[in-house]
């Protein structure tokens, strides 16, 4: 079954995600290859979202994923929290409105 995405390309159902899909989303968004450091961030993102219901913010990632903030920008250019969420197949970080 093809994965369904919202208007911005985020998966609407995190359960449709798998590692192959992550590679595809990464390519489409300008990340040529997912390295073990990318995977470290992606696994942390998914685990956090699936247990708490919120996507971690950049500061939480910097504190808890084991990858410092500067490197997060190298791995996931421009908006690491948003791009990593997209590749990890979870909704983007949002405010209340």
């Amino acid at each position: 079954m093809p994965a369904t995405v919202d208007a911005e390309g985020f998966l609407t159902d995190p359960a449709q995600w798998d590692e192959g899909l992550a590679e595809e989303i990464a390519h489409e968004n300008g990340i040529p290859e997912l390295t073990p450091r990318h995977w470290q961030v992606l696994r942390y993102m998914r685990e956090t979202y699936l247990t708490t219901g919120s996507a971690p913010t950049i500061r939480t990632l910097g504190k808890a994923s084991g990858v410092p903030i500067k490197e997060l920008y190298e791995l996931f250019p421009k908006g690491p929290a948003k791009l990593a969420a997209k590749v990890a197949g979870i909704p983007k970080p949002r405010g209340c409105i």
Binding site: T57, I58, A81, K82, K92, P93, R94, G95, C96, I97
Partner: peptide, 8 residues
């Protein structure tokens, strides 16, 4: 830090 003022 979000991608717009109104994210929903």
């Amino acid at each position: 830090p979000l991608d717009s003022a109104f994210t929903k």
